[in-house]
Write a protein that binds this DNA or RNA. Structure first.
Lengths: 343, 343
DNA sequence: TTGTATGCGTTATCAT
DNA sequence: ATGATAACGCATACAA
């Protein structure tokens, strides 16, 4: 414990720099001395001090994770574990570790990020969300610090690394699907309008209606947080309208579960009275009763690719920004009525 | 970017050490110079380099998280996000960040931990599980490195910081509950026997049977992983016995969901044909159909307290090891038949 | 192929 | 109350 490169050097009768080179497996060191030095290392139980190395190196081999400020809630949503799994896998492949910023308010999170960046605790950052006019994103952009966004940046999206789904198309497709199933009164239960993903999906929803010459009704559109309770609330609003929707496009599984629950409480049958579709296709979508039709957005892949992009731009900082679209797929289950498409 | 303490010193006409003191808000610096220095800091946009500080300080203000080697699977289970939420909250309160070790095999994880520890990347570690004869735990113990275990250490449990539930009692209580409901053929579907939590719960289960003079049958006890598929498998084994159980003590919500699914596939009604209880009381327990009776083990609290214990032993290394029991509660729902206890 | 010297950005120990 | 200087442990340009 506390054995340094110097101790090893002394024991092996070489200079500290030589030991350093052996650790780095520098080819210009003779096999002979490598052996000797490694022996000494083993004997003393030497392990390089990562902090010192980072300082000399100016690299931390760590990437920072920024969750929405309401991380409290975020952790409840299966999206995050899954995206983390993807990021973690890629990071592991390249021997990077993950540093999670903690912060409850937006301001705290912002300062935590500034601390990470200026303090050189991380070599790059993955933003796990994309908000309209996000302070943290603006900061990273101005600093030209390596980062990737999961989702589509609100602006400068051609200059910022990001990986996203084609949310416009996905929402359009799932709305089309309801229309094909004969629905004309279709509701939309989306996340906060501050999230870019919400506006993208809303546009897709609108486009599908427009194509089918169904007029858009603002009272059919609800914005809420990604949580079970919020899904309930949305339903209680929608279903007390004069002409309540017969199908619902919900943009999150957790919300959708709340939707199902509330519909059940109100005595409405899914899919007979109301068809429901959702996004994310988390495990719970398959396990719920009735099973949820949900758009699989390949969350793991989003995370994995985001990390990949980031690591690229860390290793060669001059490379131009990359964008990636991850594919989606509607997984049809009971909640939307038909398993096979009608013509 | 890249502005150091020296730049600030120069601009403010003081020595670097003075700037350092101002940053630390050392009381023996005059308010006058503090003001002057802070002005310079603001003007230059100075932020302390965390790595350099760590090196000089010999403290990283980070705590390492060690997941089971199969982190891949672990992330699927709601247990981890929730325990992480607890840890994260406490860490945040004390301005520590979280470093996640990545590693797919046991050996990789071990080396990742050694790297964290010897490399002084973290000041302490939270072990998110407790296995029989765990190599990592042994290592940390021998190194006398600050760490906390969530769960009960296999040995030296009086010398190791840990926070745990009274799993023996919890399992006994939930088994008693089934017995009170009139069941005599009670199955046990637990996790791997390598996990201490499994043996604790198994003992509680056995004790309850013994008290009720019900003989223990080894064919009623199944060990599986914490996953939906494994729950299915367990049921298919148990329900093909000559005298299949009429009640099941399952030790994980995810497994329990698999159990429900398989029972349904086999045409068995819950709770009419089979009563099911579970552990963890994750959100899915409440949302499943039928809703799962589940032992709430206060996962968030486990995480929060584990971090608290750890931070204590980091700040004063000489303090004696602490143990903490977090309380549990059986949340009765439909899957176990009766909402109110019989007498 | 290996050693020497210096820097990485702070903090801490002396002085003054 | 402040300054000079030496750690902290490693990497690297330059020498040899």
């Amino acid at each position: 414990l506390g054995v340094t490169i110097k101790d090893v050097a002394k024991l092996a009768n070489v200079a500290p720099s030589t030991v350093s080179r052996v650790v780095a497996n520098n080819p210009r060191i003779s096999e002979e001395t490598k052996r000797k030095v490694r022996e000494a290392m083993d004997y003393l139980g030497y392990h390089p001090n990562f902090t010192a190395r980072s300082l000399a190196n100016r690299s931390a081999r760590a990437i920072g994770l920024v969750m929405p400020s309401s991380a409290e809630k975020a952790f409840q949503n299966p999206f995050f574990p899954e995206v983390l799994r993807g990021i973690s896998t890629k990071a592991h492949e390249q021997e990077y570790t993950l540093l999670m910023s903690t912060g409850t308010t937006e301001d705290e999170t912002y300062r935590a990020v500034v601390g990470m960046v200026q303090g050189r605790r991380v070599d790059g950052i993955v933003l796990l969300y994309s908000r309209v006019d996000d302070r943290i994103m603006n900061y990273l952009f101005e600093q030209k610090f390596p980062f990737t966004v999961i989702g589509k940046p609100y602006k400068h999206d051609d200059q910022i690394n990001h990986v996203d789904n084609d949310n416009y198309r996905a929402a359009k497709e799932v709305t089309d699907y309801h229309i094909k199933n004969g629905h004309e009164r279709i509701g939309f239960v989306g996340g906060s309008l501050n999230l870019v993903v919400t506006t993208d999906r809303l546009l897709g929803y609108e486009k599908a209606l427009q194509n089918a010459r169904i007029s858009y009704k603002s009272e059919y559109v609800i914005h809420a947080d990604f949580a079970v309770e919020e899904g309930r609330r949305a339903v209680s609003e929608l279903m007390t309208l004069d002409a309540p929707p017969t199908a619902l496009v919900v943009t999150d599984d957790l919300m959708a579960l709340g939707v199902l629950r509330m519909l059940d409480d109100m005595g409405l049958k899914v899919p007979d009275d109301v068809s429901v579709s959702s996004f994310n296709n988390a495990m719970i979508a398959d396990l719920s009763t009735p099973a949820l039709t949900s758009v699989d957005i390949n969350i793991y892949e989003l995370g994995y690719q985001a990390a990949d992009l980031l690591l690229h731009s860390i290793e060669k900082p001059k490379s131009s920004p990359q964008m990636l679209k991850v594919k989606h797929e509607i997984i049809k289950r009971q909640s939307s009525g038909t398993f096979n498409e009608k013509e």
